[in-house]
Design a protein around this nucleic acid. Structure first.
Lengths: 217, 217
DNA sequence: GGCTATTAAATTGGCGCCAATTATGTTGCA
DNA sequence: TGCAACATAATTGGCGCCAATTTAATAGCC
């Protein structure tokens, strides 16, 4: 049981991050109501901080607000999900060029380490571990683009697409696939093969939440 | 019912929109402190609503918050501006294909009307008029993409880039240039010339806030 | 018995007070 | 005169109370 998380710094923004993280990790189901009392107990925060954090998450599109009803985890329909993925492909593949040109031996070895670490996490780590290492890998990679705005956008869109694919991601198949993708990306970066990297990124995104629909994008 | 100041909406979100609009229109200068008392008088809102709205704008990156100092209009440095424009080009040009394929005679004539209207606004309208018509033109155009997520993203990035280029935009030269661009875009859409449309969009974005700094970075 | 009106409990959310902090103005001192 | 310490005014921001609204529980009615 992991109720009442211990946190000394009661920053509103930090609390929003905590809640967002919890949602990402699937601790709240899609469409589930987030009662203020529950949240304030679970995260050991005051009522006001909870409301502020929840408001922030509404702006960030992580949850939605219904007047006089409260806040609930946003349900993203298939179509929106497709739109998000479509935009993600455009944005993330656009980073490929900058990633390759920004590549250095140091970051390359960092990436290699993280790719290995992810492989380990897939086999013997918790879901949170996998999520964290995976995020770190992509963070380092996209950081090479040298464009903070681009980076931030990528994370926003990734977060928005979460919720329904967590279960999918739980499949060991998908995890192994992600693992292979990471190594393939590394290889492409190393060989400065921009086209291949773009292709891998696009495929990676599509696999992130697969959908049997004819006609990509 | 509508006085010189704004209306009195009951929604906090609406107030945030009003303030954001005011910032876009240059009623607050870059780096200027937004004193809560001033805001609450200017927009006839309660202290609490002001703070909520301001918090929302912080999340939306329109303003920034300094603890115990207050809120101020975010100053975007040249580099960030460049990054934003870079991402804008990627995203907005990516919409070109969908725009062309989604084009219908009805929307085309709507666009033509708006392009004309913008031309009129440039000559004899207020700055607010110009801004509004211009926004409407691009809104209709990007709406053709059929991707709401993409649309929203475009607006977010546009808003973030505002602040320093309003003065530039005041230049009659730039306005006339925008006017020409609109008509050129129309033509490209009509001819289903995706490449040309992409090119025009990119150029339009670059012209939106040209680097005037000597030896610009 | 099933359905609806009424009442009670639970939850949300608007709003304001006042302590903490920062900015401003003033005085004393070298 | 310039600087620093202090006093005072202005501003921010944390927090809680309670009214408005929704949900449930219950009783009343057909």
């Amino acid at each position: 049981m992991m109720t009442t998380v211990k946190r000394k710094p009661k920053s509103k923004h930090a609390l929003a991050g905590e809640i967002a993280e919890a949602i990402k990790l699937g601790q709240f189901r899609s469409g589930e109501w987030l009662r203020q009392i529950d949240i304030e107990q679970k995260f050991a925060a005051t009522r006001f901080d909870v409301r502020t954090a929840l408001d922030e998450l509404v702006v960030r599109k992580a949850i939605e607000h219904v007047p006089n009803r409260g806040y609930r985890v946003a349900e993203i329909d298939r179509e929106t999900l497709r739109h998000i993925r479509s935009v993600r492909i455009v944005i993330e593949t656009s980073a490929a060029t900058a990633i390759v040109s920004g590549m250095t031996p140091a970051t390359l070895s960092t990436l290699r380490g993280l790719a290995e670490e992810f492989g380990v996490a897939v086999r013997e780590g918790t879901r949170a571990d996998q999520s964290r290492v995976n995020a770190e890998f992509h963070e380092v990679m996209y950081h090479l683009s040298g464009n903070p705005v681009l980076e931030e956008l990528i994370w926003n869109l990734r977060d928005r697409g979460r919720g329904s694919n967590v279960t999918v991601w739980a499949s060991h198949e998908s995890l192994l696939c992600s693992d292979r993708d990471h190594h393939a990306m590394l290889e492409a970066i190393e060989k400065r093969d921009i086209a291949r990297l773009s292709q891998l990124i696009a495929a990676h995104i599509l696999k992130d939440a697969p959908e049997r629909e004819p006609g990509g994008l």
